[in-house]
Design a protein around this nucleic acid. Sequence first.
DNA 1: ACCCCGATCGTA
DNA 2: ACGATCGGGGTT
Length: 174
Amino acid sequence: MVKKLERDFFQRNTCLVAQELLGKVLVFQGQRLIINETEAYAGFDDPASHGFRGKTPRSSIMYGEAGFCYVYLIYGMYHCLNVSTEQVDYPAAVLIRGGRLITDLTSSVNLNGPGKVCRELGINLSQRGIDMTQSPELYFEDIGLKWSYAATPRIGIKQGLEHLWRFVALTNVE
DNA sequence: ACCCCGATCGTA
DNA sequence: ACGATCGGGGTT
C-alpha cells in the first residue's frame, strides 16, 4: 500500500522523522528517490542548525509549520533539500542527504550527498516554500519499507558534533 | 551595500 | 586531504 505522507508525520520529533524517512520515497516531478540518508537539525541549542541564530528570512521555514520544503544554496553552487518538522516557532528540519534514484523498471543510481540529490533531481530555490503535504509535484510516499539505520555525527559541520543526528540506512542499500 | 564563508563535491 | 567556487544571508 502506497500512502502520501501527511502533516502529522512531520509534526513529531525531528530525529524520529529523520529516521522514519529512511525507506520513504521522495517524489519530484515524477522522479522517485528512495531515501537512505538523512540528518536532523533542530531546536534552539543546535549550533549547526540554520535556526540557531534566531528566525531570519532564510530560516523562517524551519520556524514554520511542518511539512514544508526548505531549500537553500550552499557554497554558491549546490542546493540542499530539507523538510520542516515539529511545531510552529520551533526551528527544525530534516536534510535529505542521499537515496536511490529509480531510473527505469530495473535500475537505479545511488545519490550520495545533498548537493547531488538536488542537482540530479533538478531541485533548486524555486521549490522553496512548497507544502510537501499538498503539492502534486513534490511530496513523500510510504511504500511500506522500514529500514534499520546507523546514527552518526552530521557531515560538514564544526559544531554540534556530539549529536548523532545523521541516519544512514543499513539494509536494502547496495 | 558589502563582505565572508559554508548542512559540498571532485580530484589528489 | 584539500582546493575550487560564488550566491546570498547576516550584518554593517
